[in-house]
Nucleic acid binder design. Sequence first.
DNA 1: ATGCATGAGAA
DNA 2: TCTCATGCATA
Length: 167
Amino acid sequence: PRYPLTAPTSEVETDPRELERFAEHFKQRRIKLGVTQADVGKALAHLKMPGVGSLSQSTICRFESLTLSHNNMVALKPILHSWLEKAEEAMKGKDATGELSGILPNTDKKRKRTSIAAPEKRLLEDFFRQQPRPSGERIAAIADKLDLKKNVVRNLDQTFHTSALHV
DNA sequence: ATGCATGAGAA
DNA sequence: TCTCATGCATA
């Protein structure tokens, strides 16, 4: 745990009703933006606010549900407000780079790891045993037969030859 | 969403 | 030692 994010002394803007209003607004906007509580917490580190790092999903959740101490709410409000502003702006401009980088979560789809069933795997091993480093044509043929992408087959051949199991 | 634990700073 | 912000783990 890192510290201390306490309210800037005395009565800055401590109206509970205003906090409540903001928390609700924040939550609604966040959801509209399709961002999770955890995403927000992470993104806070990308704001350039001094002394502000990332926060956990727990804390964001508690902020939205007003289950933090009053002082804590007051301290966090400007931070989350700042994030929300930038997030709206980033969304509007679809700007994933520059100052707004990291404000919104990466939507880049990660390549799914290809998994090959055991029977097919044995078949491939047979192929590679017979003919290591197959030609592009042969790879294409195998890939077609097993309904896999050529690159998958090529890489599997590589894996097979480097595997200690087969030396 | 929340129970429980942790560690920092105040008293 | 007490208080409080915060996170982890889990329902």
